[in-house]
């Protein structure tokens, strides 16, 4: 039987989310920012899995599958945008993309 108290998995999710958030705030490279967003989505999925285990319901795993779909579509559009930005600005520095107009 599972004897890990459910506080620890939730703490793990919080730690991973905090690491991802730190990555988004600290790194200025688009690839690393995208990676950090993936880490945060993964941590949110972990929290859903913990909830599914806690209540013995499948709903949490369904939500995890939806988070997977979200992460996949986000990374597809994000990578295409990174390629465009690289093409137009010839850099991957997020601070270089500061003109909010077409």
């Amino acid at each position: 039987m599972l004897t890990v108290p459910l506080l620890q998995p939730l703490l793990l999710a919080v730690l991973l989310f905090a690491l991802g958030l730190t990555g988004v705030l600290v790194r200025r490279n688009f690839v690393f920012i995208l990676m950090s967003i993936e880490i945060m989505l993964n941590a949110a999925g972990l929290a859903f899995i913990v909830a599914a285990t806690r209540w013995g319901q499948a709903d949490g795993q369904v939500m995890f599958a939806f988070i997977l779909v979200l992460a996949a579509s986000e990374v597809a559009v994000g990578l295409a945008l990174i390629l465009r930005i690289r093409h137009r600005l010839t850099t991957l520095d997020a601070d270089a993309a500061d003109l909010l107009r077409g």
Binding site: L2, V4, P9, I49, Q61, F64, A65
Partner: peptide
């Protein structure tokens, strides 16, 4: 897996 979510 250790949390019992093998499918996930």
């Amino acid at each position: 897996y250790t949390l019992g979510a093998a499918f996930a």
